[in-house]
């Protein structure tokens, strides 16, 4: 299995603050790769660095064999990377339909992907004419993921999709990400260890801006000491 995304020792600064001090990770094609770590470990900044929103000062980011570090955000996205940010990034003033349409990279993308999108998220059909701001948190999360599926993306970067959602909806979101595996590669940031261990194939643990552990998700589940050390009392 080959790595679709390879991040090598990136260092990212925000203002004068050295946020990422050497993050390395890889996401294999067709897998769900999970990034774990405490608050402030640098998980979101890693996603933002990949997208060029906070460009790293050093290190390399390769996507599908091509160096993408230093490219403007829109060029990174055009290569086939979709982003589902922590705050979902729904345009509240646009309708659900417009929120999906704006993601089209080629004319007719939405029509072409209608079966996939509405197969995974049938509720969106019913909400089609509502404005993004009228949706509940769970519905916005669905819309954000659906939007990332409209263009031909090969990789989705999903940041804490279950945050602030009711347990029933968390289950639904996770089930959806599990189904996504058939279509795209996923790099997932998730705080909830139990949720992550359910759907993750490989995992990386970040701590104070560094990658401190790499391995199969299944192995991590058995390594209580490691989990305790970097993620706190979860087991």
């Amino acid at each position: 299995m080959s790595a679709l995304l390879e991040v090598q020792d990136i260092h990212t600064y925000i203002g004068q603050f050295h946020i990422l001090e050497g993050v390395s990770l890889a996401a294999n094609e067709g897998e769900v790769t999970v990034m774990l770590g405490r608050n402030g470990a640098g998980k979101t900044t890693t996603l933002r660095s990949i997208l060029g929103l906070t460009p790293p000062r050093s290190g390399s980011i390769r996507f599908a064999g091509k160096e993408i570090g230093g490219l403007p955000t829109y060029s990174v996205a055009q290569l086939g990377i979709g982003y589902v940010p922590e705050d979902r990034g729904i345009f509240t003033d646009l309708t659900v339909e417009e929120n999906l349409k704006i993601a089209e990279r080629a004319k007719g993308d939405l029509d072409r992907k209608a079966d996939l999108v509405f197969g995974l998220f049938p509720d969106l059909k019913r909400l089609y004419r509502l404005k993004g701001g009228q949706l509940s948190g769970g519905q916005q999360q669905m819309l954000a993921m659906a939007r990332a599926l409209v263009p031909d993306n090969r990789l989705l970067l999903i940041d804490e999709p279950t945050k602030g959602l009711a347990p029933v909806i968390v289950e639904k979101v996770m089930e959806t990400i599990h189904q996504l595996k058939e279509t795209v590669t996923v790099l997932l940031v998730e705080q909830n260890f139990f949720v992550a261990s359910d759907i993750g194939d490989r995992c990386y643990i970040l701590d104070v801006g560094r990658t401190v552990h790499t391995g199969a998700m299944a192995d991590l589940e058995r390594d209580e000491a490691l989990v305790q050390r970097y993620l706190g009392a979860v087991a």
């Binding site: 403007p72 955000t73 829109y74 990034g89 345009f91 003033d93 704006i102």
Partner: peptide
């Protein structure tokens, strides 16, 4: 229009518009 949609979206969240592959 699509341009109008991008403008309305960009007023709210320009960063998100870029991550959709649009040259803001």
């Amino acid at each position: 229009s699509r341009l109008g949609m991008i403008i309305r979206a960009g007023v709210e969240n320009g960063e998100m518009v870029q991550t959709l592959g649009i040259n803001v």
